[in-house]
Design a protein around this nucleic acid. Sequence first.
DNA 1: CTTGTATAATTCACGACTGAACTAATGATA
DNA 2: TATCATTAGTTCAGTCGTGAATTATACAAG
Lengths: 407, 407
Amino acid sequence: MKTNFRTSEKELEILGLIHARVAMSRAELVELTGLSAGLISAVVRRLIASELVVESGLEPSKLGRRRVALKLCAGTSYTIGVEIGTFFLRVVINDLAGNVCHKVETRTILSDGFTRVMERCFKTIDQAVSDSGINKDAIAGIGIAHSGVVDSNQGVVLSFPRPGQMAEWRNVALREMVEEKYKVPCVVEDSVRMAALAEKQVGIAVELSDFVYIRIGMGIGSCIFIDGEPYRGAGGSAGEFGHMTVDENGPLCYCGNNGCLSALASCSAIILAVAGAIRKGVHSKIQEMVADDLDQINIEMILQAAVENDSLAFRVLNDAAVHIGVALADVVNLLNPSVVIFSGPLFQSNSQLMLDSIQRVIRQRALEKAANEVQLIVSTLGADAPALGAARFAASKSIAKLYAQKN
Amino acid sequence: MKTNFRTSEKELEILGLIHARVAMSRAELVELTGLSAGLISAVVRRLIASELVVESGLEPSKLGRRRVALKLCAGTSYTIGVEIGTFFLRVVINDLAGNVCHKVETRTILSDGFTRVMERCFKTIDQAVSDSGINKDAIAGIGIAHSGVVDSNQGVVLSFPRPGQMAEWRNVALREMVEEKYKVPCVVEDSVRMAALAEKQVGIAVELSDFVYIRIGMGIGSCIFIDGEPYRGAGGSAGEFGHMTVDENGPLCYCGNNGCLSALASCSAIILAVAGAIRKGVHSKIQEMVADDLDQINIEMILQAAVENDSLAFRVLNDAAVHIGVALADVVNLLNPSVVIFSGPLFQSNSQLMLDSIQRVIRQRALEKAANEVQLIVSTLGADAPALGAARFAASKSIAKLYAQKN
DNA sequence: CTTGTATAATTCACGACTGAACTAATGATA
DNA sequence: TATCATTAGTTCAGTCGTGAATTATACAAG
């Protein structure tokens, strides 16, 4: 029998789009793909017949007939998203219809070493699966969002953010490990890229095709979306915003360069700066907040102190914002983006403080036209964005297999 | 009669591809478009029948039947490319088959003011047309490559590189002026972008879909090619590499920012640095070269002196290369490009001197993976690249009209 | 309620495009 | 100088996808 693979390509394309946007009407599919309404209608009919897609209520409308929402069939297939970060290990279990079925968050103890961390990771996954009550065989794939430099083609972690302290984390074949244990396809990707993907699919960037996504946490990373896709560059490592040089003669960064943004404006750098100043005798209410135990300082405290007009907190945050602004002005000049999305603890609350300073520096340093055209906004997703993105990314990869099974 | 416009869209697409690559075989068209050989065959047959395309000899082959080269019909339609730069005015006349029929280069005297410069520009165009012996009615379009910030949608020059000295060059409706005078469509574009386009179409970047093109002349500009197209950004001004901040506290740039790369590493900056050092009493053979008239120093002399081991020349060029490297390391981290193409007088001869220093800084400052993946090369096109690109760009815009006429 | 207007989804005849089988052209090998 | 292997280009039957017409659904106004 002759395989009609052109049509099945279209069916896969549509399936992917419905998944990426969680819910989608035929009319939207027409707008998005540029295909004719007739074809979309036929393709969707076949997808519904194969029980891959279901109609799921009507979307609201101002005028005229309402659009029928289409979703992937839930309950048949699930994916797991895992974030392995410097401080947290997060696991989410997703169905294909866009529902988060289960999520877990624990702390990572990196000093235990790689093997122990992975043992812990697997245990957390197993626990999450059994707690969620989902049949193990229904797991279609696993996505790992990993901090540091990742070779996503090989599924290998090339280095953890702090390689000096984490030598054993070099060239780790993470995908292989996971696939061996769980016998399902695994994708390993950069953490920030996965968070950006989640933002694009279910966050504030749903309608945006081109944007810059910046995450400032213990490290600083970014993901540049171009034409609806994360830009990967030649070797898949595009987006290293955190290692832009802000001060040619600045402090040494673990990457070997001097004056990287990460070393000046990451949460770690901010905490370090505050603790250092207090040690030097600068007065701050943060000192009281932690009852003199400076190791307890965290970024939320500093933000809170700044809101309460603590001058040290304010100054340190402002310095960080200026550094971020200097680096971002370069990006604005280079890429002329319409939107920059910020995420991470610095922007979870009181984000206006940071945004205003960053904006000011951009207006001052970037070319007028580009500076006026860029809009700075804040992520709407929470801390589980990377894991969520990883789960969704894994799902997008497994859809082809699912489709093949049903046909 | 029902217009069969899907097919004519394909015909236009193919026509555009043949133009962009100057010569192209059916087999290449199949590879490039992903369309079936049958369709390509049919479309090309129709294009040949409408006398838009001709077969033009056979391409060499290692094995098997040789490919038939296809070119656009020459002799029916021409476009003019103009570069308005800080020092030179260049005009080229192109036919659609990729031949440069005529070219002129004169100096611009910007101090005459905008109106006089444009008068001069028009006179040069008129002279070029009459010298080339081409019928005025055969001119299908004009492309202007302009330095500074350009709004290509509106065809307006927003500002000349040195706005302080060139106040009357703000918001100039250049396209309107040209279209009024010549009654043919005109496109106004950024000079570097047009040079990059020429490089992509007929230069060293023919086979590259993603690359960063950097031009270091009196100013510094760049163009980022993504997926075969110049990336424009939200407002069309992406690529302002020259205004990346290299030294937060560096010298004031005309753009208002401090420590822009342009202010530190452009040819103007280099010449200024050399002249300044000599005035301060630093010994250099450049002083002899210009017979003590420091205003006569040009970049070629400095390059020559460096080759002859003049320590001042060497040091100043090296400083510039380091600054370029610092900025480029940021771009390498951000975009992970596989190729960076350099152009401009600094790279016309003895380019290895600069490239080596830049490469060294990149290895030192950019992340290891990205630094290893980037290859630095030099443009193969000469100084008329921007004008050439502009002519070709204008041609690509006029092809649709030409096609409509013939059908 | 009806009528009007606007949008969503379906149906269908017909043209666009493909895949496979074909012919044509070329260098290598003997 | 034949034959082989390989690649380029053509032909054509049959499927894919389109545009236009049609039906379905919704809100608004009288």
